[in-house]
Simulated scan of single mutants.
Amino acid sequence: MNAVSKVYGKGKSAVAALREVSVTLPKGGFTAVMGPSGSGKSTFLHCAAGLDKPTAGTVRLGGTDLSGMNETKLTELRRERVGFVFQAFNLVPSLTVEQNVTLPLRLARGRTDRALTDRAWLNETLERVGLGGRTTHRPAELSGGQQQRVAIARALITKPEVVFGDEPTGALDTMTARDVLTLLRETVDTLGQTVVMVTHDPVAASYADTVLFLADGRIVDSLSAPTATAVAERMTRLGAYV
């Protein structure tokens, strides 16, 4: 991401959500993004993931410049090279666990036959998230934590270059959230997965390698090897800053 700005609206009603943000997110790392309400966290994630186009600046995924891509190309890129985990699990109620997990493969043109016959990877992914024995269950038969595990498996099934999480533990209780965060941490440590997570929770951020702090649309601070206490202290200072 290089000199990315995002402005919503025009004239006097224009609001700058991001202001010339430049950052490189490390491959195979776990990055958390934090900031006060209205700091630009969601806009940062949406621009980085190709869900929204910046007003100025460039966003690259690997060697691909997203800036000049039309919506069709961006959709294809998101399906094949990016995984998403949201606060709302966004599962299809009528589909089984296995069908929900493999849905991105069914939607990705030209990959269906090959990918869906790769049972070894599907089984490994389901076992990794602790759902090996629940492949035929539907979302209504699962707990909230299990549903989020399905969402994580769905994000991993395409072997994406990066997984973006938008408050992935926001709807979960403390113990379940810890299990989900541990799972995300393990995907980085054992699979070399790249994870970028927006969160408001200092404990969640402490699972990351690095925390970026946004305020007023700019990256104003960062913290390596974070602890929950250190993150909370930085957030307190940001509150005073804003």
Results as ranks from 00 to 15, higher is better:
P26T: 07
S222F: 03
D189I: 04
G62Y: 04
R178G: 13
G38N: 04
M34P: 13
A14M: 08
V4E: 00
L103Q: 00
M175F: 09
T75P: 05
G144K: 07
T125S: 04
R218I: 01
R149E: 03
E161D: 10
D166T: 08
T31K: 02
L45G: 02
P202Q: 03
D113A: 14
R111G: 09
Y241R: 12
V195D: 00
R119T: 14
A215R: 07
A49H: 10
A140H: 10
T158F: 10
A3P: 07
L183Y: 00
F30H: 02
P160M: 06
I219T: 04
M34H: 08
G145A: 01
T136C: 07
A16T: 15
Y207W: 14
T236V: 02
T24H: 10
G192L: 03
G57I: 11
K159G: 00
V59G: 02
S94W: 10
L156K: 01
K12R: 09
G11A: 03
R60L: 14
L18R: 01
T227A: 05
G130C: 06
R234S: 04
E186A: 15
E186I: 07
T229P: 13
A16S: 12
H46K: 05
T136E: 05
R149N: 05
L214F: 05
A16E: 07
S5Q: 05
N2Y: 03
L172I: 08
A108H: 15
L131R: 07
T182R: 12
L105P: 12
T24V: 14
R149H: 07
L142I: 08
T199P: 12
G132L: 12
G40T: 04
F84R: 01
R19P: 11
A225R: 12
H200M: 06
V4G: 00
G11S: 02
D113C: 05
W121H: 15
G217W: 15
V211K: 06
